[in-house]
Write a protein that binds this DNA or RNA. Structure first.
Lengths: 213, 213
DNA sequence: AGGCTAGTGACAGTCCCTGACAGTTGACAA
DNA sequence: TTGTCAACTGTCAGGGACTGTCACTAGCCT
């Protein structure tokens, strides 16, 4: 179902990919606001209408790769061994995601383009706002996964949400610092993440299952 | 300078206020997306162009009252006695702000309309995103005030930002819970705030000035 | 080969927002 | 009081983000 080798399906993927790539290339080189949808469509030799058939709006294309990475993150988190503490599971998943990022992203666009896109999002007010909203949505989803792992109800026990909020806060901060810094490599953000998460370990390292609330 | 009793200045205030009020009334009754700027302008018998002379965009009018409340919050925070700990200062300022909210907001629009506006913002994706971005901007400002109070450099010592982040997180959560709950009164959110902040006290209650980092 | 249908382009239209310019109205001095 | 000036406003034109519609093309399937 996922990968039919239809010519039709193939063409669709190609078009979507071309639009995505052109869009990010234009956004990062001349800015999000100074790029029109017409421009993107023209670069791929399709109509503006077609662009909006692949992406609901101009914003969505900017987050398309993030979307992919995040969904893989959630899948990977679900697959972590049950005996790991919430913090360990989150930590391993994040580091593993950075590890695999190059390979999975590269199938769609150059990693370096994705890195530049991330920095552009952080420095474009409209996109930053959207990014924050997306972040809290992801947080909610992750909190539910963590709660499930620990056999807790997310609406009763506040710890999953609190832990994930703290974790996400650190992730957001690393993202910002990395975006502001010089070394825009995957390895740089991976190292940054690792060192920052180490500071959280003491407070979130233990399991909860048999703790009192 | 602030309150010239010019007829001109008066008319301007009246127009701005009429636009603000009509906008919020329309937003809350029929939704943000289903309200056009033309509609708002027409309700006040001014041209659409005039609307955009008072508010940079459709979003801004939704946050106009929040803007006012927030700026008063920052002023009030700066006026807290220097011997209070960061947490105490923040707590007193917040509770004081809720206390004075009815009076200060009522000068512009009915408080009840402001409450409904807040709930609308939380449930409108585009506005929620803008709200989150505004929040982190306010956080940054508040962190700097706290750092100043404590004689710290916000770029060296992470504690002001961390404390304010935690504080803001709680504030956001109360806002959300209150928006989802039944009792939409000022008193309800005040009580909610108070009880939630009590949980934070143990971890943020002490002064930092003479602590080690 | 020919019908079916997913995908596309072209077009018209709405809404948000901006620049330009002319008209109106309050402020202020003579 | 009146005339000048500056501040505000309305009107118009236009760009850019979307959306609905409809005819048409191109892959799919028998």
């Amino acid at each position: 179902m996922a990968t039919r080798l239809n010519l039709r399906e193939l063409k669709k993927q190609r078009t979507r990919n071309a639009l995505l790539r052109s869009a990010l290339e234009l956004f990062t080189s001349q800015g999000f606001d100074r790029t029109t949808v017409d421009e993107i469509a023209e670069a791929c030799e399709v109509s503006q209408r077609t662009f909006f058939r692949y992406f609901a709006n101009k914003e969505e294309v900017a987050f398309a790769v993030q979307e992919m990475v995040e969904s893989r993150f959630v899948v990977a988190l679900r697959e972590r061994p049950a005996q790991e503490s919430p913090f360990e599971a989150l930590r391993h998943t994040v580091l593993g995601t950075w590890e695999a990022l190059s390979r999975s992203v590269e199938e769609v666009i150059p990693v370096e383009l994705h890195m530049r896109t991330y920095q552009m999002i952080e420095s474009t007010p409209a996109l930053l706002a959207a990014h924050l909203r997306r972040s809290i949505e992801l947080e909610e989803e992750v909190a539910r996964v963590i709660a499930e792992r620990e056999g807790l109800d997310v609406d009763v026990d506040p710890r999953p949400r609190v832990a994930v909020a703290a974790f996400s806060g650190v992730m957001r901060m690393t993202g910002r610092l990395w975006g502001a810094g010089e070394d825009a490599s995957v390895d740089a953000i991976r190292r940054l993440t690792e060192s920052y998460l180490d500071h959280l370990k003491p407070s979130l390292g233990e399991r909860w299952t048999h703790d009192r609330v």
